[in-house]
């Protein structure tokens, strides 16, 4: 029974990692072929850093992810504080609306934002077109939902008297929020921010419809390459990004464990 369980898990893992293994392996392949192994090389990793298109897409991907995450954290956390103080009906309605970007299919979200932008540009502000700003706003609109969703449960756990106590002891409301509320909900903020960041980095569909023709992120470069044959450089950058995200998750996981230990030891 035990070996059967192990065998089953291994089989599913092989299924899940086969494409990733192929991808990583062929980032070290000498020829451009995706099927025949001709020898080991780091050539594509070197090429990668000379490819302007990939580098600028990488820059777009990370700057969009970073900026939209930071703004989403600010907008989402303040929103969550407000939503938490709402009456049940208002809270429920707001959360239903907040969940639309999470539940709605990517493609519908993409086209609906594209329609919004183009409609506004056509009938209200002429002369603008799709680009970096519209892409950023699109990412912001799904990222904020994730932050609200992660912060709200933490606020609910928070004892409302703590904040009132801080005010009674002479803290200004802003001090109260900064020094009492925020430290308590920081795990929710970090989870939400991380979720938003990875969602933004990985997004293709919404970006595809909202970035226009001048700006592209990494996923869009990859998509256009799938139409004209994948370049091993793309395998190389994916390998690097996979390692980066794994390391990020590992660090966050370690931080989480350490903070738990600290709380326990300080008791």
């Amino acid at each position: 029974m035990r070996t059967m369980k192990k065998a089953y898990l291994s089989l599913v893992l092989i299924f899940m990692y086969a494409p990733i293994a192929v991808l990583i392996a062929f980032s070290f392949n000498e020829s451009r072929s995706r099927a025949n192994w001709t020898g080991f090389t780091l050539h594509w990793y070197g090429e990668l850093f000379r490819d302007q298109r990939i580098l600028s897409a990488l820059g777009t991907t990370f700057s969009i992810a970073l900026i939209s995450t930071v703004i989403a954290i600010i907008l989402g956390t303040t929103a969550a504080i407000g939503i938490n103080a709402m009456k049940p009906v208002g809270k429920k309605t707001t959360m239903t609306i907040n969940n639309i970007p999470v539940i709605n299919p990517d493609i519908v979200m993409g086209i609906s934002l594209m329609i919004l932008y183009v409609f506004v540009f056509r009938f209200f502000v002429a002369g603008l077109e799709l680009g970096y700003a519209t892409l950023l706003l699109a990412h912001l609109s799904f990222n904020t939902s994730y932050v609200v969703l992660s912060v709200l449960p933490k606020l609910r756990q928070l004892d409302p008297n703590v904040f009132e106590a801080a005010l009674d002891l002479g803290a200004t409301p802003l001090q109260g929020i900064r020094k009492v509320v925020v430290p308590e909900i920081i795990p929710g903020i970090i989870t939400g921010g991380l979720l938003a960041f990875t969602m933004s980095i990985d997004d293709f569909v919404v970006s595809f419809f909202t970035a226009g023709s001048g700006v592209e992120n990494l996923s869009m470069v990859i998509y256009s390459m799938t139409k004209r044959g994948i370049n091993p450089k793309i395998n190389a950058i994916s390998t690097l990004m996979f390692i980066f995200v794994m390391a990020l998750l590992y660090v966050v996981n370690m931080l989480d464990k350490n903070s738990k230990k600290k709380i326990i030891s300080s008791d």
Partner: peptide
């Protein structure tokens, strides 16, 4: 966490 376009 690996780009889903590439995985696919």
């Amino acid at each position: 966490w690996m780009n889903f376009l590439l995985r696919t």
